[in-house]
Design a protein around this nucleic acid. Structure first.
Lengths: 223, 223
DNA sequence: AGGAAATATTGTGCATGCAATTTTTGAATC
DNA sequence: GATTCAAAAATTGCATGCACAATATTTCCT
């Protein structure tokens, strides 16, 4: 067994974050400290510390003396997040075009080829998973861990709002075509094109989201 | 008097961060929880929560069961931070070129003009302060609070390492010339040029730093 | 009956204490 | 003199408890 060096606080932060990201805890849900402590079998202290940590990443909102809730978001804030996400992804793509190693470039090409099959089979599950890998390649390919970490954090923060991303008809093929443009730019080392195509790609994702979830407020009514 | 709604934890986080940024707490300094609690007149609980918060911003390093230290940094990590900083600043400049309001553009021009005097008078203090304002205008001008916050966080994280920034001879005039190039690109709405010139400007800052502090390891020997 | 004030309840903010781990100190051995 | 090991001290991780603020509920008045 691996060394159990994680503190309870860290483990809690991870588990709560996962629950938010996979949708078990929906935006707006109240995060009662006693409840969480009871559910995870600890005292309130590590729960509180975990909540502070998640608050700085933006996954939850911490209102002094009024408790924590899973971050809700206005459509305006959501747009801001998507724009920031797009700029960071585009920057990662730009740096990737400049500094990916031959091995990384080969991996990128191979993943892209593999995703073509998933489009043909219309395998949304597999494509969604591969899509995460695809984007993660650029984070790593930027060869800048700070930028990569920031981008990944932003991605997690948006995760609760993009579950239906690939359900719109025709999204898979469109996404794949976009990926192709980004990939070619990166493989040929065209930094400006890499930036532009990735920016375009991510803004399309935003559009797809807007179509599927016109207003986050509707979610609240489902309570 | 303003509403005293801040919790002790938040106030502590701010004060400790300030102490790190202005250099009172140097990189590598051990942050003993008892000591901090005593110094600020509270118990360890809010201190611990403040430390967690600072750890997520990267200002301090939290080693499980081994306490916290003010983040030290290898020259390689420093370069990574500067590159990330440059990319974010450049992105803010790019967005500013696209979306600054007329009022914001006028303010930018006015600040730039005012800084010319400081260069002539060789007033390093005033220039350093105005420089922060200058860059902050682009954060706001991006009209993207998420991006602005990320960039500002990164700037704070680098603050402990850039104290001597403008001491190198001729830096002030060079910096001002660079600012002029960025400003003209933004005021004319040339997004690509704004990105490029800001990127260039920030990489020069990095060079200036490298000259003044060839190796952060030397700091440690001063203990 | 509707609304405002008062009260009860719930939940957060913080202090304190204990157990476990890490670090330091000291001695003994090579 | 250096190195290794063990015991002591220091420091973190976590649990518990209490006070106060925020919210929910009830009561009272118009």
């Amino acid at each position: 067994m691996a060394d159990e060096r994680q503190t309870r606080t860290e483990k809690l932060a991870g588990e709560i974050a996962d629950a938010i990201i996979d949708g078990s805890l929906e935006p707006g849900t109240r995060l009662d400290e006693h409840m969480l402590a009871a559910r995870y079998g600890t005292s309130r202290t590590p729960v509180r510390e975990a909540l502070r940590k998640l608050a700085t990443t933006g996954l939850i909102e911490l209102r002094p003396r009024r408790g924590a809730i899973v971050a809700e978001i206005t459509s305006q804030q959501l747009e801001t997040l998507f724009v920031a996400m797009g700029e960071l992804e585009a920057t990662c793509a730009r740096l990737s075009a400049l500094s990916m190693t031959p091995i990384e470039r080969r991996r990128l090409g191979a993943l892209y080829e593999g995703m073509a099959d998933m489009v043909v089979r219309d395998d949304v599950e597999a494509y969604a998973a591969a899509n995460v890998s695809f984007h993660t390649l650029f984070y790593a390919g930027s060869h800048n861990p700070v930028l990569a970490e920031m981008t990944a954090t932003l991605r997690r923060r948006l995760a609760p709002f993009r579950h239906a991303q690939f359900r719109a008809p025709g999204r898979l093929a469109l996404s794949h075509a976009e990926h192709g443009a980004v990939m070619r730019a990166v493989l040929t080392g065209d930094a400006a094109a890499a930036h532009a195509t990735m920016l375009h790609h991510v803004s399309l994702v935003e559009d797809a989201f807007e179509q599927l979830a016109p207003s986050p407020a509707s979610r609240r009514q489902a309570n």
